[in-house]
């Protein structure tokens, strides 16, 4: 019931969002007569598809097992899925003490994802309006430390998740670095590498799972 209801709402809001997404471009065309021709629009589409097209398809799939259906609708509409939604969902799940793979876990993840939307939307609104006045007032020590936010965030959250199963955690981050380095050298698109690392995480988990089972059986 719960899933069905949310999926229905999610699909409706996704459909509306697709329309709203084009509103500014269409409005500017109607109000100011500034509108690229159809062939130019197709060219622009080709350009962004060539650059980001693989991510459009692969990212939602790679994040799906972690986000679930409701989380995917909120997450991909609000964006910043890896940076903001997932850390928030994962902390919410940790504090509620739910177990991976259960329905309760997914529900709490959705609560966390929603909270993160409220917080990030308010902060972006605030900074868009007053940012140009406030940011220059911050000490340079603080503003230059902003460039360390993401590595620090992911370093902290990764150990928090990996310590539940240390062997898997260590092997997966090593695997991730090898895949990212090697893939980068071979020129494999970033989107494919994302999926590759997620699959590596699953395979490494599987490896230890089977090994443990055999040990128990022996």
């Amino acid at each position: 019931m719960y899933d069905k209801k949310l999926i229905k709402i999610g699909r409706i809001s996704m459909g509306l969002a697709i329309i709203a997404n084009f509103l500014p471009a269409v409005y500017v065309g109607m109000r100011y007569g500034e509108m690229p021709g159809l062939s130019t629009i197709l060219q622009i589409w080709g350009l962004v598809a060539a650059t980001y097209g693989i991510s459009w398809i692969i990212q939602p799939i790679a994040y799906y097992p972690t986000l679930g259906a409701p989380g995917s609708y909120i997450g991909w509409l609000a964006g910043s899925v890896g940076d903001i939604r997932m850390p928030a969902a994962s902390m919410a799940q940790k504090m509620a003490g739910t177990e991976e793979g259960t329905h309760a876990h997914e529900v709490v993840g959705t609560i966390g994802t929603c909270c993160s939307v409220f917080v990030s939307a308010s902060m972006i609104t605030l900074f868009t309006i007053i940012g140009s006045q406030v940011i220059p007032l911050l000490p340079p020590f603080v503003t230059s430390s902003f460039s360390y936010i993401l590595p620090a965030l992911f370093g902290a959250i990764y150990v928090d998740i990996a310590r539940k199963d240390l062997r898997t955690g260590i092997c997966t981050i090593i695997g991730a670095l090898v895949i990212l380095k090697g893939g980068g050298m071979l020129g494999i698109p970033g989107g494919v590498l994302t999926l590759g690392v997620v699959l590596a995480g699953i395979l490494i988990t599987r490896g230890f799972f089977v090994a443990d089972k055999n040990k128990k059986a022996a």
Binding site: Y63, S90, E100, I157, I161, A162, G201, L203
Partner: peptide, 8 residues
């Protein structure tokens, strides 16, 4: 495993 992979 998928979650660990994603954060990795």
């Amino acid at each position: 495993g998928a979650t660990v992979g994603l954060f990795a």
